[in-house]
Amino acid sequence: MPSRSSTGRPRERGRRPGPLTGDRVRGRTVLVTGAGNGLGRAISLALVARGARVVLVARTRSHLEAVAAEAAGLPGSTRVATADVADPVSVAALAEELADETVEVLVNNAGVPGPVAPLLEISPEEWDDVFAVNVRGMFLMCRAFIPQMVARGAGDVINLASVSGKRPLTRRTPYAASKMAVIGLTTTLAFEVGPQGVAVNSLSPGPVDGPRMARNFELEAKRTGTTYAEAEEAYVARAALHRMLTEDEVAAAVIAMLHMPGLCAADIDLSAGMVAR
């Protein structure tokens, strides 16, 4: 007999979880956006290594095919599909192309860093370009692929946010604001689709060692009249581990989140201690 609320009406209950033990990655179909390089590449390869079928999505097919080639021989499998996540027509075409796939996990990783400049020097076009990919892109991908999860009563969505959405990051206002928006999108959407068995969470990495951070340090050094090494040190000094993350560490966090079936409406800090609370 269902439990009852203080009003005497039966309490609404969400969908029961699937198996709480075992591998929650192997055999599942995972769509990863921005999969052609950087974090998207690392996340995709980690998933394939664990036996997932990974749909690699980005704008440039040659980049995706290179990742698929790297994944050859791993336990899982890949499929390449191109799309511009900021374009509703492109996302709709992607959903139609993948109608034969059962997307069980959506990893919204596609994002752009935006300008490195004071807000007063940023143009409206630059601002809109950041939000188009970092926020609108997630909205469009969720709108396209969550309905089939709701229909099945199960699914996982992981949105890549950033610690920059939760702490000051001078001269990076569009990026920081967009990542705060991602966290708001995540928590609200979780309450909309959680009762239907779809878990929505976000992962907020700190600075990740790679070309994107190298670009930021170069621009910051030029703007402040310091050296590249000084710009990098000023940034990593804020972290308890006094270093940046690796792409593989972020990929490992995605795998870990998928093995936490009770996780929902959460934002996970993975910052090497840059955010402490």
Rank of each mutant, 00 (worst) to 15 (best):
E12A: 13
L20Y: 05
V25H: 01
L31M: 14
A35G: 09
A42W: 10
A42T: 09
I43N: 07
S44G: 09
G51L: 03
G51M: 02
V57W: 10
A58S: 15
T60S: 15
T60V: 14
L64M: 09
S77R: 12
T78E: 07
A83V: 06
A92C: 02
E96F: 01
E96K: 13
D100L: 03
E104D: 10
V105H: 09
N109T: 08
V112D: 11
P113T: 05
P115Y: 05
V116F: 07
L119R: 04
E121V: 01
E121T: 13
I122K: 05
P124C: 08
E126Q: 15
E126L: 09
V130M: 11
V133S: 10
G137R: 04
G137K: 04
L140G: 05
M141F: 12
M141E: 11
V150W: 03
R152T: 02
N159Y: 06
L160F: 11
A161Q: 08
S164T: 09
R172A: 04
T173C: 13
A176K: 08
A190I: 09
V193C: 07
A199P: 00
S202Q: 07
S204V: 01
V208C: 05
D209I: 01
M213T: 07
A214E: 14
E218Y: 02
L219W: 01
K222F: 01
E230Q: 06
E232A: 05
Y235E: 04
A237P: 01
H242Y: 03
L245N: 08
D248H: 07
M260D: 13
L263M: 15
A265R: 15
I268K: 02
D269V: 03
L270G: 05
G273N: 00
V275L: 15
R277G: 14
